[in-house]
Design a protein around this nucleic acid. Sequence first.
DNA 1: CTCGACATGTAAAATGTTACATGATTTG
DNA 2: CAAATCATGTAACATTTTACATGTCGAG
Lengths: 194, 194
Amino acid sequence: MSLDRILLTLLESPASGYDLKREFEAGAHTFWPALPSQIYSTLNRMETQGLLTSTRAPSDSGPDRRVYGTTEAGRTVLDAWLRGGPDVGRERFAYLGQLAAMSLLDEPAMGRPFLTQLKRWFGERLDYLRELEPLLLEDGTPESIGEDAFFSWAALRMGISVLETRVACCDELLEILDRRLAVAESGALAGEAR
Amino acid sequence: MSLDRILLTLLESPASGYDLKREFEAGAHTFWPALPSQIYSTLNRMETQGLLTSTRAPSDSGPDRRVYGTTEAGRTVLDAWLRGGPDVGRERFAYLGQLAAMSLLDEPAMGRPFLTQLKRWFGERLDYLRELEPLLLEDGTPESIGEDAFFSWAALRMGISVLETRVACCDELLEILDRRLAVAESGALAGEAR
DNA sequence: CTCGACATGTAAAATGTTACATGATTTG
DNA sequence: CAAATCATGTAACATTTTACATGTCGAG
């Protein structure tokens, strides 16, 4: 459902499935991953639903492109989504389920590599989003840039802030875990020495 | 796929579909929402796949319960999930798509109620998770509590930290937006006065 | 002429959502 | 005895994932 809406936002200016696929790879995938096959089939469905229209256009390079644009009905659906309040409540975080269940392994120290890998993952996303920010601001400030860039920046900023927190949280948890492991270790040694 | 794994973690001790439904409502839904109908049908499928077994048991109150437990195969799958590194890369945040597209509305000030509602939503989740933390720690500290409670606490802590950041970020964005709107307003007035 | 990027899909399977259906037991 | 809670589902639909399939064009 939300992929429909996101495609509608990206189609404010006409684009082909391939363009949209690249837009997803370039940025949208950080908040809404979608594979090319899903993008193509969703565009197809949306056209039959009357939310989009398409025309075939010759490409500068390569085969013909199918270029999509929104219809009046599409704009109505998009408008309702944007005005309908935040679309929240379906966020899924499998890694939190894993983390919470880490104790089920017979090996207690397994939490260490898990948190380390998690931190690396968040760190990589963070580096990528940080590179995007200056491109959006273009020497301007959040106060002064244009309307459209401002809200894109706001979304990017929230993404960056949250990733910073996640990275920092991994560090804090690793420190606490290390102290716990050290205590367990010395306890085991004391037990052996007895 | 991940719902299977999460159910396996919760079934470390036997439980019925209804028990699991309550566990989801009580906490798990904050990182992995699932409706009762999906829980029941997933348990059913997992049993046919040999990941679970079930027995009918009389209830203290109400009709018979179907109580599930994991099999050897189930434990193998769970073990592989926990050891396989963080399950990341499919997180979806529809509200970031909405925020980034807010400028497509003809009404620029619409970002204000959106961010306000978003902040309220995050604030409510945050309050709820904060209430959970002392229950998990039970007078202990993260350094001293038992293995199983520690990892649950770690997941809860990351959830809390991130929500705190999201709430703070909404505030920051609202402030910047207000300054922008004030500037636009005075500009419009100056334009009218001319 | 081969490789990589361009460009578009289809089919099947798995997963998730929505709506509805049923009946037992406890509490007021 | 009515309402809430306990308890378990089914059916239809929508969405997402995985795997595969096809062909064009430009650069080296």
